[in-house]
Amino acid sequence: MEKKKIEQVVSRLAAKSGSSIYIQIEDAFPGRRCVGGKYNIASQTVTIYLEDIKHQCMNLFSSLDHFYDFFTIVLAHEIGHAEDNDLPGLSEILSSTRNEIERKKTALQIEENAWRYTEGLLDEVNTGILQTIIYHSLKPYKENIEPETA
């Protein structure tokens, strides 16, 4: 992937969002999970993992043709976490409640908030690609709740 194009996307989204967070790009998530991006509330840092985004893009679209859109969407989503004024309170609920259904609903709310922000921030990416990524991102959260609320 072209480093200059990635840096341009980072600069453009940072400016467009007005966010003061620190954005760093790394090759791969250090754990065993496939994580495209992560927001650290304590350090106010978004980290994007390029190899994981490539893997996710291949899994979802069977090619890297949409890599830059995918990268842009993941970055906007992580900025969405950083700009979510409700995140500190939701994170507190997530870490303090023992009610598993409440934890799952809170986790879904955190993700939905970030995706709403993403949709408002991005007007230059293909809407079909964006909606596909959102659907697949939220699907496990929703499926995790459905059996317990049915």
Rank of each mutant, 00 (worst) to 15 (best):
E119M: 11
V74Q: 01
I79D: 00
E78Y: 02
I73F: 02
N113D: 09
Y68Q: 09
F70T: 08
E112S: 06
K54M: 14
V74W: 00
A76E: 03
Y68K: 05
R98I: 07
E112W: 09
E51D: 14
S91D: 13
L108Y: 04
S95L: 13
L108T: 03
D84K: 03
A76F: 04
S91G: 13
W115I: 03
G89C: 10
E83F: 08
T72K: 02
N85F: 11
A76W: 05
A107N: 11
L50T: 07
H77T: 10
S63P: 01
D52N: 05
T106W: 05
H66N: 11
I53Q: 01
E83R: 10
E78A: 03
Y68W: 09
I73P: 00
E78R: 02
E112V: 14
L87R: 09
N59Y: 08
S96W: 05
Q109A: 07
I93S: 02
T106F: 07
E112P: 01
H66R: 15
G80C: 12
E92G: 07
H81S: 07
W115F: 15
T118L: 08
N59H: 07
D65G: 10
Y49V: 06
A76H: 06
T72S: 14
E92Q: 11
F61Q: 05
R116K: 11
H66V: 08
I93W: 02
S63Y: 04
R116I: 15
E111G: 07
H77C: 13
R98Q: 10
L108G: 00
D65K: 13
Y49D: 02
E112M: 09
K105A: 07
L108R: 01
I93R: 04
T118S: 15
L94R: 15
L90M: 11
S91E: 15
S96K: 09
I93P: 01
T118P: 14
